[in-house]
């Protein structure tokens, strides 16, 4: 959340110059982290109250990274996308899915700090149970394909045909 804070008592934790007029509070598993920023730094980081729903996350990561001393040493490079850990520390964004493996050791404390947890318990991408679904899906797509051709929607038909091919390839690879 963002809310006004008392300008007399704080200076901005990012630039260290202007009075902090925006306070960001985040509570994770009972642990409260509070960060004070000036309006300019908050805005620059997309933290002002507004339409953007995505701003908060990145900034919290960057600020937490700044505060996490145990992560100073991270100097690795992701062998898939080439992102360096120091670059991640600057931007707060990872380069590819593989970065989670490349930087697993460094990311674990950060993720725990952010979420209070390190294990996903939600939806699972069900790759094992996919097979039978996939066959039903290919059948359904073939029907769609016929309909599209019947309706002379050739662009759509081509897209569906590509998709069927892709699914069939995946099917073969699995079996």
């Amino acid at each position: 959340m963002t809310e006004p804070t008392n300008p007399k008592t704080e200076t901005c934790e990012n630039c260290g110059k202007n009075p902090a007029t925006v306070k960001i509070r985040r509570v994770t598993s009972g642990e409260e982290v509070e960060i004070h920023l000036c309006l300019a730094c908050a805005k620059e980081r997309g933290l002002e109250p507004g339409l953007d729903e995505t701003g908060v996350g990145v900034d919290m990561v960057q600020l937490m990274l700044k505060n996490l001393n145990e992560m100073e040493g991270g100097s690795g490079v992701c062998d898939v996308c080439g992102l360096t850990y120091s670059r991640f520390r600057e931007t707060g964004r990872l380069g590819c899915a593989h970065c989670y493996r490349s930087f697993a050791k460094e990311l674990k404390p950060l993720i725990r700090r952010i979420h209070g947890e390190v294990r996903h318990v939600g939806k699972v991408l069900d790759r094992i149970g996919e097979g039978s679904d996939r066959q039903a899906r290919i059948r359904r797509l073939n029907e769609d394909l016929e309909r599209a051709i019947g309706a002379e929607e050739y662009e759509r038909a081509a897209a569906i045909r590509d998709l069927i091919q892709e699914l069939e390839t995946a099917q073969k690879e699995l079996s």
Binding site: R93, H115, E117
Partner: peptide
């Protein structure tokens, strides 16, 4: 079903920012 979403059994769906990882 049609796209290879990035998913890790431990961490869930993988996202550019670790604040979104999991669900």
């Amino acid at each position: 079903q049609a796209l290879d979403f990035a998913f890790d059994p431990e961490l869930g769906f993988l996202t550019a920012c670790p604040t979104n990882v999991g669900t």
